[in-house]
Every structure is written in C-alpha cells, then in structure tokens.
Design a binder for these strands. Structure first.
Lengths: 196, 196
DNA sequence: CTCTTGCATACATGCAGCCTGTATGTTAAT
DNA sequence: ATTAACATACAGGCTGCATGTATGCAAGAG
C-alpha cells in the first residue's frame, strides 16, 4: 500500500503528474500514433484530468514534444553508455551506428521518432532537439576522422546530415523486417568508401 | 464562357469532381498539412460538397493517398523525362539524383512526400506506392552498375533503400536552406566510394 | 427506333460523436 | 493572502455516416 504523504511540496506534485502524463502519453503515442491518441484517454491512463494536462503543457503538441525529448535523451544515453571513445575514429563510427540501432530497436520507437515526430513537430524543430541530446556525436566523430585524415575531406555538417539519414533509414528498414546484418554491411561499405 | 453540356456522362462527372478534389486537396495539404486542412475547406475550394468527397473516397486519408500518388507519379515522370538512359551506369546514378532534386524542388513537395505522407499513410504503404511509380529506377540503376562491375557487390534492395534515404534527406536539407552544391558533392563522394 | 420503367450512380444535407482548447471554479501549498 | 495545482463545464470544429434527391443508364415493350 502506497502511503501518500499528507503534505507534498508543489515541486513534487508537478513532478509526479508531469512524469505520469509523459509516461502515459508515450505508451499511447507509441501504440496509436499522435492523432490516434486523444487527450481524454491519455489523462485517464495517467490518472489525472485534462485540466492538469493543460495546466502543465501548453497544448497536446507540447506534451508530444516532451515525450520525444525524453526518447531522444534515452537514445543518446544508451549510445553514450556503449561508446568506446578510446577506439580508432573509423571504428567509433561503426560502433556508434550499432549502438544507435540497438537503442532504436525498442518497441515502436523508430516510428515515433523518425516518422511521427517530424510530421508533428516539423523537421527543423526536431533537428534542434536532436542536437541538444547528443545528435552532435556523429558530427564530432566525423570531424575527428577527417582531421586525422582517415576519411575524405567534405563539408562537415552536410556529410553528418547525410550519414544520419543513412542510420535513420537503416533503423526503419530493420524495424520493417530487413536483415540487420545486411544493413550494417551496406553502411560499413559506404563508410569504408569514404576512407582515404 | 464555358458551355456546360446538358448531358454529361457519369464517367465525365466523376472525372471532373475527383480531379477538382485532388487539386484542391493538394494545395491545402501543401500549405496547411494533413491535419490542418479540413474537409469543409477542401470541398469549398473544389466547388463541391462533402457528400461528393465521401462518395468518391472512402475517407480523408484515401483522398490524401490519391494526392500523394499523383505527386509521386509527377516526380517519376519528371525524372524519366530527364533520364539519360544512354549514359554510363555511374553517371546515370548521379544525373538521376540531380533530376530527383529538381523534381522535389517544387513548392513544399518535399514536406508533403517525405514528412507528411509517411506519418499519414505509414512507411510501408508509401514505399509500395513509390515502387509502383518508378521508385525502382534507382534499384535498376544499381543493379546495372553492379553487374557491370562498376560498383561494389552488395545486397541490392538494402543498398537501394539506403541510397534513397540519402537522396530524400538531401532534398529535405536543400529545402531547409542547405547548399545544393554541397549536397551533390557529398552524395557524389559517397557514390564514388562504392566504385570498384 | 423510341419510350418508359427499374435500378445504379452521383451527389446534397443533416446528424451524432469525438476531440481540442479555454474559461471558470475549487483546493492545497507558500 | 496570494499563487500554484488542479477539476469541471463549455464552445467550436471536424470526421464519418445516414438519409434524401436527382441524374445517367440499361433493358424490354410497343
């Protein structure tokens, strides 16, 4: 039996309800998509009312943004935890990709982050959020590899954007039933082609 | 003055209303997105009523699918018209990419096809539609290049999927303000890395 | 060959249900 | 007391369907 304290600070109250909302929203957005998951259902699952939702979040989209931000943060953490920062620049890229695929393999996370989020939040806003949470890892790795002369010298930001597209589509393909080994093989071949 | 014939065959009636609906929906979906463009506004712009819409299309999503199908067909046509099928396999890939970027440069077409459509129709269904309308061009080009020994031997379908991700993200980046020259440069470098 | 008669197709209109965002009221913290 | 954290009620809009109407169409009777 959970003893609910007689006196909860406002900070605690806010924290519990917002996290309950984000958790409930996450599940429903995952299973039914953004448009398919209505706020009545979300608040019911979170055990609060719509009033609480619209008190803490400006609108449904803001709640969705909070969910995505949490997902991006989780993915970044998971990659960083598996990051062999001592490895050679090129291998770090390949290993980072593998960690990314592992992190994206949870449930329908791929669809949420790569399909739904761009449509709801816009590609630009999502890109900004991604940069905050470790989306620069790839760019830094490429920068290091380029400065070491390991890979060809190309416009850094554009190359990072293009290669991240590769990883994104790879995650999508894997979730769609493609062979993860083949995807890895193709990506390694492409990265290998950039070596000098 | 347009003389409207006293006797229009049913086939003609259907054709005019459906094309009017698709044209109106296209514009509004482009400017306001799928969720932002309501059916009342669409039918008003098309000069028909919601009854006509739901008679010819199962639901709003089906109308959207028809719009996307038309767009994909237009893109495929535009690429095919610019296709130098006599060129060497490798150059054909590069030129095809350039034609793709040109075709995607119209208005907000990129956002509609690459952002909105996957979210509304699902990635799988969109992929099927794309295959019908010339999305196999890339795969065929790669197949030819591989059989000629021009590029490395890799799983064909996976490679095509990955490279199409490259082109898609490139179109997105260009629309987002990136330098088209840089995008082309990076893509050529990546393709070049696959040469044998 | 024409005309009428029955049916299917192409719409138009109104309704029911749901959802979002806001405004107002109430309770608990500070 | 004042503000923050909710709860509740309401207004507007939108989607899908059900019902009603007119028009094209195909087939048989004359």
């Amino acid at each position: 039996m959970q003893e609910l304290p007689a006196h909860r600070t406002n900070r605690e109250r806010t924290e519990t309800t917002t996290s309950a909302l984000i958790a409930a929203a996450r599940e429903l957005f995952l299973s039914k998509g953004y448009a398919g998951a209505g706020t009545p259902e979300i608040v019911k699952k979170a055990g609060v009312t719509r009033g609480a939702l619209y008190h803490h979040f400006e609108d449904k989209k803001a709640l969705f943004a909070a969910v995505i931000e949490a997902e991006l943060s989780a993915v970044a953490d998971q990659i960083e935890r598996a990051a062999p920062d001592a490895a050679a620049p090129f291998d770090a890229l390949v290993e980072g990709g593998r960690a990314f695929f592992d992190a994206m393999a949870v449930e329908e996370r791929t669809r949420l982050i790569l399909i739904e989020a761009p449509a709801v939040l816009g590609w630009e806003e999502l890109r900004d959020m991604d940069r905050k949470h470790g989306g620069r890892t790839l760019q830094q790795g490429l920068d290091a590899a380029m400065k070491n002369g390991v890979i060809a010298r190309l416009p850094l930001e554009t190359l990072a954007t293009m290669l991240s597209a590769l990883f994104d589509r790879g995650a999508l393909a894997i979730e769609g039933g493609a062979d993860p080994g083949e995807v890895q093989q193709v990506i390694v071949a492409i990265l290998d082609g950039l070596r000098r």
